[in-house]
Design a binder for these strands. Structure first.
Lengths: 229, 229
DNA sequence: AGTTACAAGTGTAAATTAAACACTTGTTTT
DNA sequence: AAAACAAGTGTTTAATTTACACTTGTAACT
């Protein structure tokens, strides 16, 4: 009876495609790879994989993320399902996830293995299928999310300077931010801890390191206040 | 060669589930139906259907919307893919879409045919599978969208009063809005046209009807301004 | 005809938030 | 000792949001 109901329904290939984002040289980057098989062999593509029979789509995304970055416990969020593309010969319904990773933790040996590279989001090549659209939607979503949730820190190492943090947000919003206003706002939330060390790699004076303190953020929320940059 | 690559991949049942929203009696309503087949026969569910082999997922959603409402050209937007539910016996990946309809255009004969009814969003029964989660995510998405896009008008008839429009937004945001501030804001955008007729169904004085003028909205956008309520 | 009931309709002031803006500091290099 | 240079710092103005209470128009009732 049950089997009978499903029996005449079509089944589909379902893939996950991951928009893996990293931050380097004051710019957002996305991990892309040369596609190793047909159709569109050699085209630039996002990192993806097929969903297995008894696997949740979230688990599939996690598996793919781990496979291509060597990092577990990655911050990720679904972007949406894409299925209107007329892929050659076979139609695949693809569910896109974006992920924010600390690019320093990235296992670079995997880049060789998969012929992958980090491309600046402002200078992405044309991607296959609807992958360019996925990236566009992701940036949109990220801009809205990063404005109200402290997810940007996932793109940084544990310690970071305020100039770096600011340039991260500038890269996400793709617009300049006033230095004084930015500092005022982020520090007013009292969710960062200032450290004693300085990063002297980009100035003689050096910039103090800060850390994001999750507990302080939770406290902020508990007080009915909100993160906002 | 190509076939060989896909050959060993699993295929999945893919459905669309539609959160069909209407506005009535100053409250958002959602169309739900008693499920007519196993598993979970008799449980309250969203309106859904399976995606056909050569159909885009958007088209599948449109088809389902038309089937259950009798309305074509419905405003709809994807909410996301849901696939982590352990559905009895068979796993189905479902892509949720929300739709905003003028409840007056709804073909009520379909309600009988499908054993469907409009339920207040504040008083929804427990829904099957992850449908309750879909509704929750939809309300979230709708709150963010309705704040910056003039999509709320899809829930109203062509002519509507400002008190009605306000109560629509109150129902979407689930919070009271100050009457004067609301009117100030919506009228300042100059996207509505005031008509000469009044609606006297809810007061002796009567409230003037207004119409949303898409051309005026386009003009607003062209000026670099934004819709915002 | 006058009164009542009642939602529709209207404006201003205060508070908050966002935006604009330029100089000083600390450290290394020359 | 001077130069170079990014890090760091406050205040003022503008814009936006919030709070708040009375008048108006019409139908129903007496």
């Amino acid at each position: 009876m049950i089997a009978a109901f499903y029996q005449n329904k079509d089944k589909h290939y379902v893939a996950v495609d991951c928009i893996i984002m990293g931050f380097r040289d004051n710019e957002l980057h996305i991990l892309i790879a040369k596609r190793p098989f047909e159709p569109l062999l050699g085209g630039w593509s996002l990192m993806g994989g097929f969903v297995n029979e008894f696997e949740s789509i979230n688990d599939a995304a996690k598996r793919v993320l781990d496979e291509f970055t060597g990092i577990e416990d990655i911050y990720m969020e679904q972007v949406g399902a894409f299925g209107d593309v007329n892929r050659d010969l076979v139609r695949v319904i693809s569910i896109a996830y974006y992920a924010l990773v600390d690019i320093e933790k990235f296992d670079t040996s995997l880049a060789e293995k998969y012929d992958a590279r980090w491309a600046k989001i402002t200078q992405l090549p044309e991607l296959i299928f609807d992958h360019s659209l996925m990236v566009k939607n992701t940036l949109n979503l990220l801009q809205r999310r990063a404005a109200v949730k402290p997810i940007g820190f996932n793109l940084l190492q544990e310690q970071f300077t305020l100039p770096t943090l600011q340039s991260l947000y500038e890269s996400i919003y793709q617009e300049a931010i006033d230095k004084r206003n930015f500092r005022k706002k982020i520090l007013a939330m009292d969710i960062l801890e200032k450290l004693d060390e300085k990063d002297k790699s980009s100035s003689r004076k050096g910039a103090f390191y800060y850390r994001f303190i999750k507990e302080k953020y939770d406290q902020l929320i508990q007080q009915g206040l909100h993160f906002s940059i």
